[in-house]
Design a binder for these strands. Structure first.
Lengths: 110, 110
DNA sequence: GGCGACTATTCAGCGTTACTATGTACTAGT
DNA sequence: ACTAGTACATAGTAACGCTGAATAGTCGCC
């Protein structure tokens, strides 16, 4: 992946995953696959799992272990109230940043 | 500043500064002040200076020392061809990310 | 029954980035 | 002198995503 994208994902990837979980619960492998499908081709699996551990420790998600038909049991994550609140803040922060950047982009001309 | 913003700025702050320089050359103190005016209230001076050193070392900017009427001489940075190219890439990367996030935001409903 | 392919999670070590906190230096006003 | 404003610099820290590898379960094929 481009280094630019790597750095840009810092802080936003967490929001992206929370946003995915806000639609419906999901487990790590599934999230990774979905991100790949949606164009984030090179996000490392390890990155997602580490992120999931982090948001669990922060208390943004509830976890349930569900047996899988194929392979080891899945850890299904679902967004809780605290996570939803944090996601709201995320959208606010993102909105501010996106607005500034759009302004800079049109200002700059190209 | 919120921790969310801090993390989100990683990777984008560099683009923001390059975008500012693409309009016209500027020096560190000036850039910091402008960012403050534009709502990035709590960006530390040290952050900008460190960033400027970085983009200089990467060869994205040309530097000229200009005496100031008040205080030490200014280091005026101007975007060069390589920096402009990198800025283009930045906008492409940013555009992709912004598109994905907007999609997620409307999908998520709130 | 052994092997690869797919599913699923975990972890140690690394590089990059922004923040904190502090220091240096020059000018002007009181 | 002293303070405020201008202007730049840097050492140390924390957070985050990536690399690369390990572990473990299930399935189908030869």
């Amino acid at each position: 992946m481009g280094k630019q994208m790597t750095e840009m994902l810092k802080g936003t990837l967490e929001g992206i995953v929370l946003a995915i979980l806000s639609v419906r619960p999901a487990y790590g492998y599934e999230i990774t696959a979905r991100l790949r499908d949606e164009g984030f081709a090179d996000i490392a699996e390890g990155t997602i799992y580490a992120l999931l551990v982090r948001i669990e420790q922060k208390g943004f998600v509830d976890v349930e272990k569900v047996p899988s038909e194929k392979g080891p049991p899945r850890k299904v994550y679902s967004l809780n109230a605290q996570g939803r609140e944090y996601l709201d803040e995320f959208w606010t922060t993102w909105g501010f940043l996106a607005e500034r950047l759009e302004q800079l982009h049109t200002e700059g001309g190209n």
